[in-house]
Amino acid sequence: MKLKVYVTLKPGVLDPQGRAIHHALGSLGFGGVEDVRVGRLIELTVADGTDDAAVEAMCRQLLANTVIENFRIEHA
C-alpha cells in the first residue's frame, strides 16, 4: 500500500527558502506570484491494512516536527 505524507510549514512560520524561490521567480520575469512555501513529500510503502493511527504516529514522532510543521496523509 502506498501513502503520501505531505509535510508543510505551519502558517506564520517564516520560510527563508520559499522567500528565496519567490525572489528568483521574480528575477526570471514571472510576475503575479504572491507567495512561495516549500514543503516535503514523503512516499511510504507500508503493509496492506496499516491503519491511519500508525502512520499518524510516524508523522508525529519523526516525519514532521510539529513545533513548526503540519502534515497530511494521502492514500495513493
Binding site: V13, L14, P16, Q17, A20, N65, V67, I68
Partner: peptide, 11 residues
C-alpha cells in the same frame, strides 16, 4: 528543549 532551529534567515 522547546522550539526548533530552522534555516538561517539569510540562507
Amino acid at each position: 528543549l522547546p522550539g526548533a532551529l530552522m534555516r538561517n534567515a539569510g540562507l
